[in-house]
Amino acid sequence: MFITFEGVEGCGKTTQLRLLKERLQARGHRVTATREPGGCPIADQMRAILLDAQNSAITPLAELLLYAAARAQHVQEVIVPALERGEVVLCDRFTDATVAYQGHGRELDLATIEQLNRLATGGLEPQLTLLIDCPVETGLSRARARIEAATGAREERFELESILFHERVRQGYLGRAAAAPQRFLVIDGSGDVAATEERVLAALSGKLSVLGEAVSVPQQAER
C-alpha cells in the first residue's frame, strides 16, 4: 500500500509519518518510509539544490523540472521496488506537493505539471493521502523554530517565501483534497503532536482494512 503525507510547512506531517511507521512496524508490517524531494542519493543531491535559500535565483520552471527529475529517480529506485516487495510505503510529499507548490504557489500551468507528474511516476499514484492541515502562520512558526534548532544544512528556501505564497499552497492542497475525497483524508494539525496523532488514527481506522489490525484508535476522546 502506498500512502503519502502532505501539507504546508510545519504542519507536522513528518512527525505523523514517523509515528504511523512505528505503529505499523509494531504490528509486524514491513514499512519503507521515504520523502520528497530526496529519498535516494541522486534525488537527495537535487533536494540540497532545491531547498537551499542561497539558490533563490532558480526559476519556477527549473524548479519544477528538478522536482520531476528527483521524483523519477526516487520512484524507480525506492518506491516501486518497495511496493513490489509487498511493503507499505509511507512518503513525505509526492505529486500533490508539486501541484500545490509549483502549480498554485508559483502559478505554473497545472496541465503541464500533471503531465510531468505522470511522466516522472510512470502513472504511479498513492492509494491514500493524509493532508495535515493547519493555518499558514502556525506552520511557518513551527518550521522556523525547527530550522533554528537544526545543526545541518538550513533547508529554508520555501519558508522564506511570502505569506501569500503559502496561502496559495494551502488553498491548492485543500482544493485538491475536495476534488478527490476518496483518496484524501484531511486532518486538523493545528494542535499538538498527540492530538494530531489521535485524529490521524481515527481517520485511518476505516481506511486501512487491507492491513487488517494495523492501526488502532486510542481510547481517549479525540481532542
Score class of each variant (00 low, 15 high):
210 V>I: 12
155 E>D: 09
123 G>K: 13
161 E>C: 10
123 G>N: 12
2 F>Q: 00
92 D>A: 15
132 I>A: 12
78 V>S: 03
215 V>H: 12
154 R>N: 09
68 A>R: 01
171 Q>H: 09
189 G>F: 14
1 M>Q: 04
8 V>I: 13
184 F>V: 02
171 Q>N: 09
214 A>K: 08
222 E>Y: 06
27 R>L: 01
24 L>T: 05
187 I>A: 15
183 R>L: 11
172 G>T: 12
178 A>F: 13
27 R>W: 00
2 F>W: 02
117 N>H: 00
55 N>Y: 02
67 Y>P: 01
150 A>E: 05
109 D>R: 09
55 N>W: 02
77 E>F: 08
58 I>Y: 10
142 R>M: 07
107 E>D: 15
150 A>V: 03
174 L>S: 09
101 Y>Q: 11
173 Y>P: 01
12 G>H: 05
110 L>Q: 13
209 S>H: 06
64 L>K: 00
21 K>H: 04
8 V>K: 02
220 Q>T: 14
11 C>M: 03
211 L>M: 04
92 D>N: 15
74 H>V: 11
157 R>C: 09
87 E>P: 01
181 P>E: 08
111 A>I: 01
134 C>Y: 09
88 V>T: 04
122 G>H: 07
43 A>Q: 04
72 A>V: 00
199 R>G: 12
24 L>G: 07
23 R>Y: 08
61 L>K: 10
16 Q>Y: 08
174 L>I: 08
143 A>W: 02
21 K>M: 07
155 E>S: 11
105 G>P: 01
182 Q>E: 14
91 C>T: 07
19 L>I: 05
111 A>G: 00
161 E>Y: 04
59 T>Y: 04
98 T>I: 02
70 A>H: 09
1 M>E: 04
192 D>H: 05
221 A>Y: 03
170 R>F: 14
